[in-house]
């Protein structure tokens, strides 16, 4: 159910975003991209937690907000220092998304069985 609601929310958001695009200044697009990556990681983490009966709304919400903010800030800090710090966020969130997807898949397969 949660997965279905998430997909519905995502699709609805994308449709509205296409019809009435949200203006993102080009200067901040890199940071918004990182924040979105962190957001997607949080969503997958939330679904994983829900499926494993360890979901906590406060942890989920705070994780979503803080991770997104930290990812964007890391990107900004990296730009200021001349270091590709955003790569750290990309690697961490990217690999975690893979892990979460793998866990969700396993849990769903177990439930099917």
């Amino acid at each position: 159910m949660v997965g279905f609601v998430t997909v519905c929310g995502l699709v609805l958001g994308i449709i509205i975003g296409i019809l009435r695009p949200v203006h993102i200044p080009a200067v901040y697009s890199k940071y918004v991209g990182l924040a979105l990556l962190a957001g997607m990681d949080s969503i997958l983490g939330g679904i994983k937690g829900y499926l494993k009966d360890s979901f906590d709304a406060t942890v989920f919400l705070s994780g979503f907000l803080i991770n997104s903010l930290v990812a964007a800030l890391l990107g900004y800090l990296g730009d200021q220092l001349g270091i590709d710090l955003y790569l750290a966020a990309v690697v961490v969130f990217g690999s975690r998304m893979y892990q979460n997807i793998a866990i969700i898949r396993r849990v769903l397969l177990k439930k099917e069985a």
């Binding site: 997909v7 699709v11 994308i14 975003g17």
Partner: peptide
């Protein structure tokens, strides 16, 4: 949250 993420993706 997924709606918010989806809303920002096309932009």
């Amino acid at each position: 949250i997924s709606f918010f993420v989806g809303l920002l993706l096309p932009g």
